[in-house]
């Protein structure tokens, strides 16, 4: 998204160009338009804009994309930290 930039060099998104068959589905589903497909191969255009939603990886028919998916939500992460420390489900995340 042009109006918003988040923290660079943190996204876990990776693409294995060898495996890619250029179906274009990653380009379709990505809400941040990270991929461009040209000459039957996908290319990551702007990794820093990736929000790690995982839509591309889930829809890639040949598993050429890897990303650690999740929701970018501090409340969620606090819940994970608290639950990790106490070893129980003390907190539930948001939505």
């Amino acid at each position: 998204m042009k109006d918003y930039r988040y923290i660079p060099d943190t996204a876990t998104l990776r693409l294995d160009t060898e495996t890619c068959i250029g179906c274009g589905l990653c380009q379709t589903v990505c809400p941040h338009r990270i991929f461009v497909v040209a000459d039957k191969k996908a290319r990551i255009e702007d990794r820093d804009a990736c929000m790690e939603c995982g839509a591309c990886a889930r829809n890639c028919p040949v598993e050429a994309i890897t990303v650690t998916p999740g929701v970018g939500c501090a409340v969620e992460i606090i819940a994970r930290w608290v639950n990790g420390i106490t070893g129980r489900t003390v907190m539930k995340g948001c939505c």
Partner: peptide, 9 residues
């Protein structure tokens, strides 16, 4: 927000 990644957060 629709642009924050879990790794970034």
């Amino acid at each position: 927000t629709p642009y924050t990644s879990p790794s970034g957060v």
